[in-house]
């Protein structure tokens, strides 16, 4: 099942519980940061429109694209769009080229610039955290192990039974389903976590049922070929600083258009070069032979 997050900005009161929960579940220092960085996967920002008299809190985080540019450009395939819906980064593969940061149309991936062994960091959709409850076993030193008996690591940290319990409680919602920490923490249901198709239908239904309360757009449903984070708003997304100039075509298609031609180019050019070589060297041979013949004739005459 592919998951998604729906953020209804009209419901958001700006309490910051989502951000605090995010920082807690990832063991980040709890600071009110308005910019995403390696230790802030989500931010909350107030957009005031004096003319309209509106105040809107805007959450920003990874959009978890359906066809992510970051994953397509990663030369070692460290970034992956999982079946779960989350776009994840694999510390064991990354070589630190930062092409993902350049390629991301939403400028989401951040880097541990000060680290000697830097990681690329961004919202994980609590991918590992949500699956932690499935692993109940603990080894004799008190660390949680998976089915194969290997210790589970999140961000390079081994998880103790206590850690697991606190993480599981932070990622379990009122219906006893696993969900992202931000959606669990949200007191007004402004951030919902669930099945992507269902949430998308819900978003469209909300616009249809209350056309006066929303601008008629589900941000994230079409941008760069669709994402797994949707936004609803009652003011234009452009005025809220969203990236609104994006194509509806998935970006990786642009490079794939070129890359898929490579085998043809290699074969054609290889044959062409071989042919040119054969013709030019053959011409040389013929000329040398003719010269030889001419010389022999000349010798006979004299």
């Amino acid at each position: 099942m592919s998951h998604a997050i729906l953020v209804d900005l009209t419901e958001c009161v700006g309490c910051g519980a989502c951000r605090d929960a995010c920082q807690q579940v990832h063991k980040f220092p709890e600071i009110e940061n308005t910019k995403l960085d390696a230790q802030n996967f989500t931010t909350l920002r107030l957009c005031e429109d004096a003319e309209e008299g509106t105040e809107t809190y805007v959450r920003q985080m990874c959009q978890h694209c359906q066809d992510p540019a970051c994953a397509s450009v990663c030369l070692v395939g460290a970034i992956e769009k999982t079946a779960d819906g989350a776009v994840t980064w694999d510390e064991g593969k990354c070589i630190g080229c930062r092409y993902c940061m350049l390629a991301c149309p939403f400028d989401i991936p951040k880097y541990e610039w000060e680290s000697g062994n830097p990681k690329v960091r961004k919202c994980t959709m609590c991918h590992q955290e949500r699956h932690l409850a499935e692993n109940a076993k603990v080894d004799n030193e008190g660390f949680v192990i998976d089915r194969n008996g290997d210790r589970i690591e999140i961000d390079g940290r081994e998880i103790t039974a206590d850690d697991r319990d606190s993480i599981v409680s932070m990622t379990t919602n009122d219906d006893d389903d696993r969900a992202t920490a931000c959606s669990v923490a949200c007191p007004t249901a402004a951030t919902l976590f669930g099945d992507r198709d269902e949430l998308l239908a819900e978003a469209h239904a909300r616009i249809k049922d209350n056309p006066d309360d929303y601008v008629p757009q589900v941000y994230g449903s079409k941008e760069v070929g669709g994402t797994s984070v949707f936004y609803l708003s009652n003011v234009s997304f452009e005025s809220l600083g969203f990236y609104t100039k994006l194509d509806h075509e998935a970006l990786p298609q642009r490079t794939w258009n070129v890359l898929e031609k490579i085998p043809d180019i290699v074969v054609t050019a290889g044959v062409a070069l071989g042919a040119v070589y054969w013709i030019t060297s053959r011409r040389d041979e013929v000329r040398r032979y003719e010269d030889e013949v001419k010389k022999q004739k000349a010798n006979k005459h004299s």
Binding site: V76, K93, I95, G96, T255, W256
Partner: peptide
């Protein structure tokens, strides 16, 4: 110099992503 983790440069050989221009 530019890679954040240059000691993993050989990863390119084993974790290949043919969709990446940079891999090519």
């Amino acid at each position: 110099f530019d890679l954040g983790r240059p000691w993993f440069i050989w990863h390119m050989l084993i974790y290949q992503n043919p969709h990446s221009v940079l891999f090519e």
